[in-house]
Design a protein around this nucleic acid. Sequence first.
DNA 1: GGGTGCATCCAAAGCGCTTTGACGATGGAC
DNA 2: GTCCATCGTCAAAGCGCTTTGGATGCACCC
Lengths: 346, 346
Amino acid sequence: MKLKDLAAQLGLSQTTVSRALNGYPEVSEVTRARVVAAAKRHDYRPNVRAKALATGRSMAIGHVLPVSNSHEMVNPVFADFIAGASETYTRSGYDLVLSVVPDEEQESHYRTMASKQSVDGLLVHSPRPDDPRIPLLQKIGIPFVVHGRDSEVADYSWVDINNRRAFRRATEFLVDLGHTRIGLLNGREDYEFARRRRAGVEEGLAARGLRADPALMYSDEMTEQYGYRAASALLALDAPPTALLASSTIIAFGIRRAAIERGLVLGRDLSLISHDDVLSYFRNGDEEPLFTAIRSSVWEAGRRAAEALIRQIADPDTLPQILLEADFVIGTSTGPAPKTNAKRKA
Amino acid sequence: MKLKDLAAQLGLSQTTVSRALNGYPEVSEVTRARVVAAAKRHDYRPNVRAKALATGRSMAIGHVLPVSNSHEMVNPVFADFIAGASETYTRSGYDLVLSVVPDEEQESHYRTMASKQSVDGLLVHSPRPDDPRIPLLQKIGIPFVVHGRDSEVADYSWVDINNRRAFRRATEFLVDLGHTRIGLLNGREDYEFARRRRAGVEEGLAARGLRADPALMYSDEMTEQYGYRAASALLALDAPPTALLASSTIIAFGIRRAAIERGLVLGRDLSLISHDDVLSYFRNGDEEPLFTAIRSSVWEAGRRAAEALIRQIADPDTLPQILLEADFVIGTSTGPAPKTNAKRKA
DNA sequence: GGGTGCATCCAAAGCGCTTTGACGATGGAC
DNA sequence: GTCCATCGTCAAAGCGCTTTGGATGCACCC
């Protein structure tokens, strides 16, 4: 069933039928009702390809997921982010076209997408410092929103959380509890978000007159095993940290394992604050938060980013920039610095 | 730069340019070379929308992810499966259009996709028993591949692992080690894969003359906390199981936590076999497997499913059905049934 | 020299939709 | 009774590509 058939059936022209269905005012309400009823009856839905060609808009948004080719790793964060975004797209009639592309092919892939004109806008994931994709897209002139920022002054549209502030705050919280040896199990610091988090920790320490100890700072792909191994190494030090900051709940799981294995109780012997993306399958406790955490739902971020992109497509002059503040939730994994350590320092 | 411009520039007709670029034989090699060179020089790439309209093929595959609307949960398994599929699509020039749709809207969403003609084929995730989507798609007549099967005799294309056999084998392995009280921490049993796994366990027990104890069988969304809570409950029984089967590595993490917390050593005090989808962020150990496991990469399954679908689109008469056998890898989490329990039974 | 066959290329139609520009009908103002 | 808006409708062009059905030129053969 195509437009032509439907028009013939109704004894109307294609023009009128098209207008009726798309809500143009030049058609009488009685005709519109007839057309809409007939369309529903025949389950008519316009062919998107033809529509796209005629309007020049494909009603699709591109997401390009970078995958570390060496590891074949895809971060579970993406699943939730995309689920959030997809929700918004579906509601607005957009499709989401996804491609998973090895790091080194990113740039050429973006170029291809743009010249094929298969999408009306792009969502850029995981920006690196001085990410080449951004000037590329600006040059091409296609609407895009970045999840994260590649620098403090970013002249493009983005959605990000205030990583620096959140980690600074968490750090100060720990220092105020008496902790002075604080470790950080960060994500890969060739990504901006991880750099900001580290900067936040350093600022927090500095603000309280402490200095960051590089020996307590780790950075890697955020797996459970990384959390376990790094925490085990840290806890085996002569002067182990009394508190740890983790860049993800998954890392925190690994830390907890290392702690339990040593008979340490979180919140008493070792304090732990985790960043919590509120991932579907890695909830930080149920009703009660398990870990004290910097919490910001990445699902929600996906939703917001999608909205920002759609807004920008509608009006290319707006460049939405959305900074989400993370919640700071107190769980059972933090407490005052243990006496023994205090003594050791004295 | 469009075809017309390129043709004009070269002093050729659109026909010839189009043929040259698409590898048709009716064009001389010298002309083809000229055209290809010019296309590269101008970074010409055909507009996919126009191409799709002209050819009737949109060069896109649809994936519809079900999301339990109540929980807003998206299974991390999808991320790896889709990454694998996307790899294949990209290589074959297909786009992947993704939608995340609440359970109850699944059917209407499939219907819409088909009538909009925006995709050439569909990949169906997470089949339920007697899943209505399957007859629907058969009626519509669009090529599709199901990840999993909704029944033992399935007259459509699917890619699945031999869940039943794998869990049967794991169960027998445990019984042969002397375990008689064996628990199962399964996924949601309103999905086919979980039913098969349970059936496999029951078969394995029956084959060794044992009966399944419903009190030792759990079923739920596969989170770490579910694993922890269910295992804790089981271990607190008067006659606790000496061995557990887990439907995912994430559940196994939870079980391990419960075990460690009780001072139990996996492989000595409690045996554990997990299903391992080889998810990016939940590796079962690094070089050495941590858990004894039924292993089958879901990334690979995505790749195979995508290949099957593309094959089917090319030749609708083939209905590829691919049954992957899982590896059985021995880790450190299994061992003979502890004496104390053996005594208790005697 | 006229036919045959092949290699190369082209004009134009068509994919299913939107949108421009025009047209007949109606009704109110004068 | 004429004129002019306004309304409701339509025919046709166009989106950028593929593909059908020739057209042209040239070598080859009898």
